[in-house]
Design a protein around this nucleic acid. Structure first.
Lengths: 220, 220
DNA sequence: GTCTATACGGGGATAGAC
DNA sequence: GTCTATCCCCGTATAGAC
């Protein structure tokens, strides 16, 4: 029974995926070398070719693993029994939580877009469209039917605007720090949570009916 | 495709910058080779080393040229004699116009963020912060003082939320196409302009006072 | 399964002719 | 200023020992 040393519970394969996720995210596909990944994972670089056909296959498997995680996490905020406005607020918070706990995700997604026009991630994005994005659009439609949200916004566009705030903040984080007047690279942790709260509020305000008769609890 | 043989007007140097802008934006720094740039520019690749010290210097000069263009363009929407809400709407439209006419810009900015945490673009982003971003924040503050905008949003955060919509749409364009249910890569041109209009409306709705009636806000 | 050693090609950069 | 030719490193991927 081939058992790795007690120190690493994770299989070598998982270690390789972990290391490649980090390196591909921070350096990009082309700049990351097989040898670097092996070094980071603590295995010999030739071993990568035992588990994965080539560099590209390794990349795809890594990406798929990560996005699956995000989808299951994001759906958790949509599948709850709460009114649409609360669910939307919860979704934005949850999006922020995930993105800032997994900074690799926005980086990798963005690289996909710019490097290949999303070609390598098409299947995954389609999955995303059918689950999380569709759920968010439905939520907005539901709020519109309930007169909680204004009806003169296209739900899909409103969904993109909602998502975009936290997504952009995460992607452009280094620039955001500078824009907000901080020293390079060091954005206080409170700013991040503050912005998540702001983003939820901003989206809800934009969606609120022009005549603000509708119920706005939030008496905290 | 290579440019036509050196038309007298554009210097070889400019041709090289043009080609590198396109290639760095679409392929990234590491994946773009000196030889490709030379080919695209219609000059011999060794000539790049006559005009630029090395690949990195070429990259920086290219980036600086592009961002200067954007700043001067963006400021045009802020320096007009109109009420804040109209100026904000104009700004978003102009941002969209520039970004979709210069698709290289969002790609390069995003690469900067992910590749080097913005390190190579720090000076330029600082410039951006001091001009365009500051202008946008001022605009929002002015609207707040004039009671046109709600006062319980941090101007800097509201500015980021405003910018983020179009920026994210441009960055994630391939994914956005899929999310909206189109065939891969082919987002109708009308969708782009429609979204720009939506983004301006969304931001103005979010900034609109909750209800001008005398309801006093709780201090939070 | 995991390692050592190496082939093979490609890319950045330089020398030097014109 | 612009080109031809070339050096040399480094990265992917494979062969094969253990």
């Amino acid at each position: 029974m081939p058992r790795p040393p007690a120190s690493d519970t994770a299989s070598r394969r998982e270690l390789i995926l972990d290391a490649s996720e980090h390196l591909f995210a921070t350096q990009g596909f082309a700049s990351t070398t097989i040898k670097q990944i092996g070094e980071h994972a603590g295995v010999n670089s030739a071993l990568l070719y035992y588990y994965f056909a080539d560099k590209d296959t390794l990349y795809r498997e890594m990406l798929q693993r990560l996005i699956r995680q995000m989808i299951s996490f994001g759906m958790g905020a949509l599948d709850v029994a709460e009114p649409p406005d609360q669910r939307l607020e919860g979704f934005v918070r949850r999006q922020a939580g995930f993105v800032f706990e997994h900074p690799n995700l926005p980086k990798l997604m963005v690289r996909e877009m710019t490097d290949h026009e999303g070609a390598r991630a098409e299947a995954i994005i389609t999955e995303l469209a059918a689950t999380m994005f569709r759920g968010l659009c439905e939520l907005i439609r539901e709020g519109q039917r309930a007169k909680l949200f204004r009806a003169d916004l296209r739900p899909e566009f409103a969904a993109i605007s909602t998502i975009s705030q936290v997504a952009y903040f995460a992607i452009a984080r280094p620039a955001v720090g500078i824009l907000l007047g901080h020293k390079r690279g060091h954005l206080p942790a409170t700013t991040v949570t503050d912005f998540a709260e702001h983003a939820a509020k901003f989206a809800l305000a934009a969606l609120a009916p022009a005549r603000s008769g509708a119920s706005r609890r939030k008496a905290s």
